[in-house]
Amino acid sequence: MKLAHILASIALVTIVVVNPVALAQEPPKLKVTPLQKEPLTGQSDKEVISLIVEWPPGSGTGLHTHPGDEYTTVLEGEVIGRKEGSEAKTYTAGQSYHNEPGVVHEANNKGSVPAKTFNVFMVEKGKPVTEPVKR
């Protein structure tokens, strides 16, 4: 009886250890460093927010929108951006891109090295900068 119990325990441990679902991990998280948040001159209902985003390999945003314009410049590495209904585009250090308000999009670092971006948002005051898209 003891041997059967030990073998059953080993089988259970083996299933848990080699099961890819059990080994699945969350993707690495983006590190966001706020730099500035100021009212937009002449438009008291809007503000400009700037930040640095550090992208570990394998990290990404998931599908989301913004309530205003997003302007991004890649400082290091590369980021793959995709607007819904469009092909993905790879942006490397020194390249910039723009996402219009309400456009569903995502960005990812699918490379093996970290990436870093400088992001500027012009959004309505009091609204979240990013809204995840639920499907």
Rank of each mutant, 00 (worst) to 15 (best):
V21L: 04
S50E: 01
P34F: 03
V104F: 05
A88S: 09
I52D: 00
P34G: 06
Q43H: 07
E100G: 03
L75V: 12
E106C: 04
E70F: 03
S96Y: 02
G68H: 09
K2N: 11
L51P: 00
P101R: 11
G111I: 03
V129A: 08
S44W: 05
I49Q: 03
I6R: 13
N99V: 15
I80T: 10
Q36F: 12
L75F: 07
L51C: 04
A107P: 01
H5I: 15
L51G: 02
V123E: 00
K127G: 01
T41C: 10
K116G: 00
I6Y: 07
P27L: 09
E70V: 13
P101I: 07
L12D: 14
I6V: 14
P114I: 06
K2Q: 15
P132N: 10
P34E: 10
H64N: 03
T117C: 03
G58M: 08
T33F: 08
T130K: 13
F121M: 12
D69W: 13
K46N: 08
I10N: 10
T61W: 00
V13K: 12
G111P: 00
I49H: 06
K110Q: 13
A115N: 05
A93K: 04
H98F: 05
T14G: 03
Y97D: 01
A4S: 15
N108V: 13
A4L: 14
G68S: 05
P67N: 05
G62W: 08
T61E: 02
M1N: 15
I52Q: 00
E70D: 08
E38V: 12
T73I: 02
P114R: 10
E76F: 08
K110N: 09
L35R: 10
Y91K: 09
N109F: 09
